[in-house]
Write a protein that binds this DNA or RNA. Structure first.
Lengths: 211, 211
DNA sequence: ACAATACTTGACCATATAGTCAAAAAATAT
DNA sequence: ATATTTTTTGACTATATGGTCAAGTATTGT
């Protein structure tokens, strides 16, 4: 029986092949989008035959879903870290730095997520309505408390998060545009490196309560 | 001979049908991406037969290219408006407001562009390397002058533009996420409306020279 | 009215691609 | 060693889809 329909403890081969497939699929999906990707491309990149891939996953869509499920946890992790008891400005700027770092280290995941949401989040709308919404709502409450306590300037917490998500992921999702505009001619600086101080400065000014 | 290969002055029917097709294609492409869209979908939405569509455009790709060409002009227009002689903060905040308004009024164009750039801009890399890069570079120079003159705070002009593009287009491109997180339950407020003041405030604080 | 031109389409074709299957090969258990 | 289970794959099918074409219909110019 196909591995993908079994419930027993996975063997070493199963773990390894499943990993290879997800790794290859992340490459392909993030570059070409779900519909622009074919099982043959994934198979080739994973050095497996197409039927072999379908032995481990029931369908192309199943691979995609598995990736998105992993992804969302990665995506949400930094948000969990915002600590109500910490220094508000450091907490938020730390979050910005972490999101930027994730965009730099996991650009494929960022693009996969962007692709999915752009098309109306057909596969993870449920999770967005659930986990993401709940967590954002909770952290928005924390920001509101900080504002009430006069620790940071009064800004809309939701738009604060949106702007952080937008600015940080922009460097991964629109990297071609960013690199082109900055000049591909290897002017040395990595966009992520120079974006760090810019964003840090922007959010410190935005949140500084003494204004 | 097929209209699409002719050079004569277009007739009324040609203008109308071409418009219908581009309109329908913008709907479909922006919702599903280039590869996720089929000529049949475009044909149906335009109330035309598939061969009829191919009478006006040589290929699916030709439709896409035509859309992107129009699009880029729309996209760049607000940037042209930044006036070196104007008040720096008003110029930039005006630009932000205009970009936000365009995201609100032309979400399909924004998504089409996002889709294209996400996949590495295969069809408009040339234009990005040309027009977009040149114009951005010129306006970055203007911002630098303002900084040198002490009229606005010192920030990286390129990252300033990136952050403006990212934050404004985010509301169009990621609208499902934005609306979901804010609560679909029609809590009244339109995300674009509430984003306006937030972004205006953010950029005024960022650029305020007295800090 | 008549010809010339522009437009439209049903019926195709060629190709790409997700997914199947039976049989072989490899790994594992006894 | 042998039986059992897991893994692998060549050959295949069904369908979707971009694009063609010849034959028709409508429009326009004279």
């Amino acid at each position: 029986m196909a591995r993908s329909q079994t419930t027993k403890k996975p063997t070493r081969i199963q773990r390894e092949k499943t990993r290879s497939i997800l790794e290859a699929a992340l490459d392909v999906f993030s570059e070409r989008g779900f519909r622009g990707s074919t099982l043959d491309m994934i198979a080739e990149r994973a050095s497996l035959s197409k039927p072999n891939i379908l032995y481990y996953f029931d369908s192309k869509e199943a691979i995609h879903k598995a990736l998105l499920a992993e992804l969302l946890q990665t995506w949400l992790a930094p948000l969990h870290g915002i600590d109500e008891a910490g220094d508000p400005i450091e907490e938020i700027c730390g979050y910005v730095a972490q999101k930027l770092k994730m965009a730099q280290e996991f650009p494929r995941e960022s693009k996969l997520f962007a692709n999915e949401v752009l098309q109306g989040a057909p596969h993870i709308l449920g999770e967005i309505q659930g986990e993401l919404k709940a967590l954002t709502s909770e952290k928005a409450r924390v920001v509101s408390e900080w504002i009430k306590a006069g620790k940071i300037a009064a800004v809309d917490p939701y738009h604060l998060f949106f702007s952080i998500w937008a600015t940080t992921q922009h460097y991964a999702d629109f990297d071609i545009q960013v690199r082109t505009v900055l000049g591909d001619e290897a002017e040395g600086a990595n966009p992520f490196e120079t974006a760090g101080p810019f964003l840090d400065n922007m959010y410190r000014k935005l949140l500084n309560p003494a204004s």
